[in-house]
């Protein structure tokens, strides 16, 4: 077991830091359904942490708890060494936790650039009157924010569609724009709910590369959900495996792959 503050070094030589997000004994119920059953796990600074499991296992629910969209009945969320009081999703976002959605939630009526710019809203501090006369701080802020957004857009190779209304984009590109918007806020923790779902092989490879590059280039801590075992194993440093709301495995990809419970869950043995 690792110490909370002590880091580790990955197989490919990246330094991982202490615990950023610590989920302690989380239980989440919807009426009679227990979507999450007493699960604990942590996410460390700079790592790519995956949550996997079959459909309906409770993965999205877990991400929703982290991002404040769902409130667990039991358990504690510790962020950067402090116990988090109950928060609204927008407050969680303001703390530096950005996310994407399994079913894509973009501003369909806006252009790609405008969508990405909304990622900067929490960072904009100039008061309304200053924006009204458009001077000094407000202007500087606008320029800075735009630069950051353009950088993200370049990074994710979507320059050519900057001005395109999002509604006109194909599914794969929408997913990328959603990632861009999340990145624009320069998050301390990035949550991705099935970033590769519904994509073709080529798009999946692109997305995997982007996720790795984001982590590498900006040192962003990433927690992602994936359905497909294969993709996850290549991408992540540590994996949590969920099944029917329970945690059935937690460790490096190799450890998880060797775990009998995990193998059973994925082969459907335990469900018969």
């Amino acid at each position: 077991m690792l110490d909370a503050t002590e880091g580790y070094t990955t197989a490919d030589g990246r330094k991982i830091g202490g615990v950023v997000m610590d989920m302690r004994n989380i239980t989440l119920r919807f009426g009679g359904v227990e979507a999450i059953k007493d699960i604990s796990f942590d996410i460390r600074e700079g790592e790519i942490r995956a949550i996997i499991g079959p459909n309906g296992a409770g993965k999205s629910s877990m991400l929703n708890v982290i991002s404040g969209f769902y409130v667990p009945q039991e358990g504690e969320v510790w962020f950067r060494g402090e116990k988090r009081p109950q928060m609204k999703p927008y407050q969680v976002a303001q703390q530096g936790i950005a996310r994407t959605f399994q079913n894509i939630a973009l501003f369909e009526g806006m252009s790609v650039l405008d969508n990405v710019m909304t990622g900067r809203l929490t960072q904009m501090k100039a008061p309304l009157w200053a924006q009204a006369i458009w001077k000094g701080k407000a202007e500087r802020e606008e320029v800075e924010n735009r630069e950051i957004c353009e950088k993200v857009i370049d990074f994710l190779e979507i320059q050519s569609i900057r001005k395109t209304p999002v509604a006109r984009l194909p599914y794969g590109l929408k997913k990328r724009v959603e990632l861009a918007r999340a990145l624009a806020s320069e998050p301390k923790l990035l949550l991705l709910d099935e970033p590769m779902a519904g994509m073709n092989v080529e798009e999946k490879e692109d997305m995997s590369r982007f996720i790795l590059d984001v982590n590498d280039e900006f040192g962003t801590t990433i927690a992602l959900i994936e359905h497909d075992m294969g993709v996850v194993m290549d991408l992540s440093d540590r994996v949590v495996v969920m099944d029917y709301g329970k945690k059935i495995g937690d460790g490096t990809p190799d450890e998880v792959r060797a775990n009998q419970d995990v193998i059973d869950a994925y082969l459907g043995v335990s469900h018969d």
């Binding site: 609204k88 407050q91 950005a98 959605f101 939630a105 973009l106 501003f107 809203l121």
Partner: peptide, 13 residues
């Protein structure tokens, strides 16, 4: 445009 997306970028509805 979208309530859920707005929340996720830190806007208080």
């Amino acid at each position: 445009d979208d309530h859920q997306a707005a929340l996720s970028v830190g806007i208080s509805l």
